[in-house]
Design a protein around this nucleic acid. Sequence first.
DNA 1: AGCGACGTACCGACCGGTCGGTATCGTCAC
DNA 2: GTGACGATACCGACCGGTCGGTACGTCGCT
Lengths: 241, 241
Amino acid sequence: MAGESAGTEARQRTGALAERLLAVATRLFAEKGFEATSVQEIVESAGVTKGAMYHYFASKDDLLFEIYHRLLMMQTRRLEQFADSKGTVGERLRAAAVDVLDTSFLHLDELTVFFRSMHMLPQEKRKTVRAERRRYHERFRALVEEGQAAGIFRRDVPADIVVQFFFGAVHQLSTWYRPNGQLAAHEVSEYYVDLLMGGLEVPRPAGDANTDTDTNADTDAKADAEAEAKADADAEAERAS
Amino acid sequence: MAGESAGTEARQRTGALAERLLAVATRLFAEKGFEATSVQEIVESAGVTKGAMYHYFASKDDLLFEIYHRLLMMQTRRLEQFADSKGTVGERLRAAAVDVLDTSFLHLDELTVFFRSMHMLPQEKRKTVRAERRRYHERFRALVEEGQAAGIFRRDVPADIVVQFFFGAVHQLSTWYRPNGQLAAHEVSEYYVDLLMGGLEVPRPAGDANTDTDTNADTDAKADAEAEAKADADAEAERAS
DNA sequence: AGCGACGTACCGACCGGTCGGTATCGTCAC
DNA sequence: GTGACGATACCGACCGGTCGGTACGTCGCT
């Protein structure tokens, strides 16, 4: 389904062994961390030798990159499906949010590795991953902004903040959720989305808590996002020394 | 409460050099990751030699542990102050939440290291850190439960979920926030707390979104939390192989 | 003199990656 | 149908370098 035969090289990573290596690496990286897992352990756990791994992957980083790339591609594809479907903004946002949560629960190991070892990627690959992730966030943010413009969601919190807030919670799932716990994954998904949608509701005007209301709207939010992106790139550049 | 002169050893880490080493290590760990930072780099960056570092710290892990320990001790102390102060539950929860956010912004590096390298700690120390963190979460959860019992907060989402949701968002701050960005740290704090408090509001009964309401109350939430804790300990035990 | 606070020299383990080699398979001439 | 032959898939020994940690010396203050 996803275009495999892409560029000049990288026709690899399609064999059954490559899949097994990726799966094993994901599990080991999640268990012990990227750096603490040696290539030797990976190939032994997969029942092959190092020569086999380096036949399919250019480096140890390449394994990491492939894990990230696949996860992001899948989630982006799913998000766009939900975001572009029929229904009110609220319905679409809720459906997309529930889906990304359910999907995350199915790939907890990938999530763990993602936010723990992202910084281990070399510059080039990290830039690619960041770009893919930004695209994902922007599509999600557009949904929030649409709801704000429609007057359904509160305007006194920038859409970008909402997205960071929500995905922060999502991305930390792997640090506390245990599949054999009391709560089923989908229950947590529903709870989380309830909290998100509740937080997005327009505050009651006769409230006692909020004093400052409607400071800046979505235009400012977009400007902020761009500024953050720039600062982000700067930080990345500095770090390249 | 926080007994410094605990066991037989560990009377150390009180000199000015120890402080500098910790500060340098925190920055380097946040920049390049724990494993990618060599002890040599740390001591060179602090202007001393390895002998000095191993005079104050038993190991490289020990640096990590001390970073965690200090951060948790400080945040726990502050939380208890806010939680035990005067005012309504809503006011106290809001103040505590704003404070933990503001504090987190002041210690972004520590946060980064925390959630990226926690798994690098040896069993024993990790258990200690986990216990301290659990205590922190439980105090926060008690606040939410108090508000639920008072009827101020919604009851259809377990308090434990609310806490995980919120702190997930908080703990991911270091992955996207840049101090030189457009948004001041405290602005983000306020936005985040607005989203939290909004999510905690009792849903409007005549809503169109929520169909299932008031499934289980705080008693179930507490049971869930204990179950999660047990499952957590089990997973930890398994991982000890 | 004696002890805490560091510096210096060095060890042993390990790790990512390489490289020459082998086995298996498709294919194509004859 | 069969043997040659090139390509792909995989093996496994090995290397250069690095890293955490240690043993021990030395300086300075009391």
